[in-house]
Design a protein around this nucleic acid. Structure first.
Lengths: 381, 381
DNA sequence: TAAGTTATTTCGCGGGTCGAAATAACCTAA
DNA sequence: TTAGGTTATTTCGACCCGCGAAATAACTTA
């Protein structure tokens, strides 16, 4: 029951200026003024503040359009944002430009069961390497599971010994001397994909369909976390005709039991097929046109589509984005689409996009970087 | 595809001042200053503006606390807000104080099929009667079905001949010379109940369970309309074990086919019981402990609970409020609760409230008045 | 090289908020 | 009943923000 935190100094103008410069939609003060529709003098002041803060840089002059040449602006070339997606067996780490663009990624083996200190130390070492000759502007951290974003720590008891209650945000902020934001993977993936697709407007859902199924929700360009930070749970939606398989949650017939990668492996086994040990195995078989695997993947897509149709009718988003290993399978996506368009009210699907995420496997890193950027920039001005 | 309209001059302070005065949480300028945590001088200016606008009034002095007596503020006693809920066979009309409090209601017979002009004329006549000796501060109009709130008109082709495209907002604004807001019934009911329960924070869903089933969504105190204004549709959620009854939407097994009042009447008939012709008949029988009717109502509650469990897991609201004739039935609510608590993740139901709406049948009027008030006040300052 | 064009900065205004001080309107107790 | 303490409200000067007009800067072009 955290109180609403003090609203960040959301200047608004500064953020939009950076946005336009990052996207290359405005290169000079005068272009910014005309695109934003605000006074040139105002732009001048805001730009100066961003220059002083080291977020923007001047990069010579542009070509004249018949008069004085514009002074070209760009995001500070030496500024970077670092992101890390802490997962079960490994951590993916990203280095981003101040535009949010992902410059390169690394992956290191970790074991969350080692506890926060050793794990984060390993991540920090990589951060140090990546930030030689650069200024870390902000850091975004993704944790698997419920996060209390106010404290930057794992919220609920979980399968991560030593983590619950540990203030990841404060620890990393002290270690690297920058703004650090912490959120859970589903929210960050949703934010990452949404920003890439829509920027700061619209509503979307980003579903991660892999060994497990989860989703993140964006309402009006902002992450919707729900009353208790539990929003986005679709894996326990009851699926009609699912055969009432018991789920870890105690109920039966959950989406998870029929559409998750784990359930596909199980279903292969149940049919006497021992070829698949992992979700990836099933997907490989399906890609090689194995009849059983393909059927199972399609059926999983139909089930996910069924669950999503309820959500789409209710929430009426502009788009549903799919990430995770299963989203790479065309038959899977086709089945999802087919079921959603079949089961939803036409008004809800009228302009609905159902697509594989353009940020792919890096959605979380993108989201972590974006959020870090948005918070960090507000703090720096 | 309406562009985002220009943000109203949401002064923020003025709105919060009115809110505190309306709730009696602050009676004088100094109390406002301490509660709001803003400078006394600022409060003075804002209050003066509200006095000048005729929205606030001074009402003598209060009791001294050892020094100068405070000058008591109240909402202008002669200001009213009018609301109308246009339904199939009748229109419910409300007269509200500037606090939003419902002073009295009327109901007149109308036929939407007469078209907008004659229908709205009849409503306006009642408005005229209700506003003798009073100043109409704003008007809120509820329409059944999809509304384009930008134009204040019925959006989609519907069962309302002559209405689609007719600018209800502009027409009423011209007729009565005030700010008029128009929205659909589900959204307004949700807003009305939510404001009453939570004010401007939190997330909630308000479900109307009557002859038909619909819902409205509040995210962070604001109505969530979705990408195409279709958000809140839960009536076509597929229900497991529903018997695959064909629905008007073209699919089978929709919530509507097993949990709506209309479906209860049908189910009575199918079992050879001809006693019930309307939803009210079924509910009356159930209240009188008729076994069949009671069973059907309970089962309907379970089905609604099933649909809501998916929505609660996904959206993680602070509360689900129930309105409509079915919500008066205790067994119905109990069944909804039971199913939701059984089928949802504990984290989602941890602090979840599932309750009959306190605004009851007047939820729509409350919501229409609130929205009108919020828009109208912004326009008046 | 003057004239026209475009880019950016300077400057003063109005609106909003603030804190400090002044003023107003009490209570209390000698 | 009057001085002294207390509380409520207003006045005042300062600051920040965004604006538009005008000045300035830096061109291009004839």
């Amino acid at each position: 029951m955290a109180d609403t935190p003090d609203r960040t100094t959301d200047d608004g103008h500064s953020r939009r200026i950076l946005d336009l410069v990052a996207r290359g939609e405005a290169r000079s003060r005068s272009e910014l003024a005309s695109v934003l529709g605000i006074a040139a003098s105002t732009v001048g002041i805001r730009v100066q503040a961003l220059l002083d803060a080291g977020i923007l840089q001047e990069a010579g002059t542009g070509t004249s359009r018949g008069g004085r040449r514009p002074r070209v602006l760009q995001l500070a070339a030496d500024g970077i944002v670092l992101s890390v997606d802490l997962g079960g067996g490994h951590a993916r780490i990203g280095r981003h430009a101040l535009s949010g663009a992902l410059l390169d990624t690394r992956s290191i083996a970790i074991d969350l069961a080692d506890g926060p200190l050793p794990t984060l130390d390993r991540v920090s070492s990589v951060f140090d390497e990546l930030s030689v000759d650069a200024r870390i502007h902000a850091i975004g951290v993704s944790l698997p599971g419920p996060v209390d974003i106010a404290t930057g720590s794992v919220d609920q008891p979980s399968r991560m010994p030593g983590w619950p209650g540990f203030r990841v945000g404060e620890h990393m902020a002290a270690r690297h001397g920058t703004t650090v934001v912490v959120d859970n993977d589903a929210n960050l993936a949703a934010l990452g994909e949404h920003r890439e697709q829509f920027g700061h407007a619209h509503h979307s859902i980003t579903v991660k369909a892999g060994t497990a199924i989860g989703s993140g929700i964006i309402v009006d360009g902002l992450v919707h976390r729900g009353a208790t930070g539990a929003a986005g749970d679709i894996t326990h939606t009851r699926i009609d005709g699912s055969g009432d398989i018991p789920c870890s949650c105690g109920n039966t017939g959950c989406l998870e039991t029929v559409a998750s990668g784990a359930s596909l492996v199980r279903q292969m086994r149940e049919r006497g097929d021992e070829r698949a040990r992992t979700t990836a195995d099933v997907l490989t078989l399906a890609r090689d046109a194995d009849p059983l695997a393909t059927t199972l993947v399609r059926t999983a897509g139909t089930h996910l589509g069924q669950a999503l149709s309820g959500v789409v009718n209710f929430f009426n988003p502009h788009a549903v984005f799919l990430t995770g290993s299963m989203s790479a399978s065309e038959p899977f996506i086709a089945a999802v689409r087919s079921r959603v368009y079949e089961a939803c009210h036409p008004l809800a699907t009228q302009h609905l996009r159902i697509e594989s995420a353009v940020t792919g496997a890096d959605a979380i890193l993108h989201g972590a970087a974006r959020l870090a950027l948005e918070e960090g920039t507000a703090a720096a001005i």
